[in-house]
Design a binder for these strands. Sequence first.
DNA 1: CCAAGACATCGAGGGATGTCAATATCGATA
DNA 2: TATCGATATTGACATCCCTCGATGTCTTGG
Lengths: 119, 119
Amino acid sequence: MSKSLLELTPVQTIACCAPLAKEPLSAEVAGRIAPLLKALADPVRLRLLSMVASHGDGEACVCDLNDAFDLSQPTISHHLKVLHDSGLLDREKRGVWVYYRVNPQALSDLGALIGGVAG
Amino acid sequence: MSKSLLELTPVQTIACCAPLAKEPLSAEVAGRIAPLLKALADPVRLRLLSMVASHGDGEACVCDLNDAFDLSQPTISHHLKVLHDSGLLDREKRGVWVYYRVNPQALSDLGALIGGVAG
DNA sequence: CCAAGACATCGAGGGATGTCAATATCGATA
DNA sequence: TATCGATATTGACATCCCTCGATGTCTTGG
């Protein structure tokens, strides 16, 4: 490890390490991965991420996402921010509308970390 | 879906559905998967699971796990219970000692759900 | 410049969560 | 049976998190 973990975003961290079941996670790495899983560990955010990830264009407008839930607009905005801050979603503003798209590498790396597939 | 989701444990649920990025998760399924991710989304539990999963015999004694953390015994016991209740860890008592072992199918299914590998 | 719409931020309230000390439970052993 | 050691449970506390209403920011259109 040539660079300190402190210089990496949560998403970058998960690309650095062996699957969960191969060798014990260090406290430092575990402390970096947990926030990423926390970002995923909410039913609304799971659905948001899934809706964005499975959307035809690979991106989804906030205006569409808002309508899919029986929650206030600030609440959806908050969940999208959590996913964005963790590095799982990218954000782009075009005119009045904001579009989110997934970071496919992050999802695949996280899946490999948990599932044990070689990274 | 022939059986109601209510009849399945969290771990059984994740084997039933397409990857996150393939189609939008239903509210019902998302509500089932989130607790599983919540169980994983803690640095101590991540390390516990990793320690158990990567242990030589495929199982680990609580007595060993306790010593690996600077936390009280009830706290470790609590985290192990969360992992056990979610279905990620199996529990077996032999004499005075308790051994935990991972549910490999659960880990692999969860990884596939996130990473997008065909389930 | 002003109004309207899309989205983000702020602040607060109620519930969930991590941690500990104290205590209970269970099996082994004297 | 009495005791000891390993693990689980309970109860309490501090903190975090989800949600909302209110408000702010930015862009477009008039």
